[in-house]
């Protein structure tokens, strides 16, 4: 009986030790956190020809091993157009990244994207992709 109890407690200790260990995340490297994209002017429905700006705030910094980062804005209809280039922008002192003016040229549900390439040591480069869908009509 004593032996059984000992084995039981031993198993319990092992289980309690193993489960949290296996679930722990020892990856200290992490990308910054961001707010949602804010589109200015703010409307429920936009018209073709409207000009908007997008902005996003950094809500938490990247881990300290961050080497480099680049961020840009993009719109879903630009992917098929080689003339449309990524709109590279940097964060200001308040931690806000604002796009250039974007002219809405396509009707329908379109997505405005904020992309980032966040570079950590040893080619550990991570992708940031945040989108906001807006409705555009003719």
């Amino acid at each position: 009986m004593f032996k059984t109890k000992c084995i039981y407690y031993l198993m319990l200790v092992l289980l309690l030790g193993v489960v949290p260990a296996s679930c722990s995340d020892d990856d200290s490297t992490h990308v910054p956190s961001f707010s949602v994209i804010k589109v200015t002017p703010e409307k429920d429905v936009y018209k073709v020809g409207d000009v908007v700006r997008c902005s996003i705030s950094q809500t938490a910094p990247a881990s300290e091993d961050l080497r480099d980062a680049s961020y840009w804005w993009y719109a879903s209809w630009w992917f098929a157009d080689s003339e449309m280039k990524a709109d590279f922008q940097e964060f200001d002192a308040d931690g806000v990244n604002t796009s250039s003016e974007i002219t809405l040229t396509q009707a329908g549900d379109v997505t405005l994207y904020f992309f980032g390439r966040v570079e950590f040591p040893n080619y550990d480069w991570r992708k940031v992709e945040i989108g906001k869908k807006i409705k555009v009509v003719e």
């Binding site: 840009w72 993009y74 992917f79 990524a86 994207y113 992309f115 390439r117 992708k127």
Partner: peptide
């Protein structure tokens, strides 16, 4: 810009 296209 091309690299940005590939990254996306």
């Amino acid at each position: 810009y091309d690299y940005a296209e590939m990254w996306m």
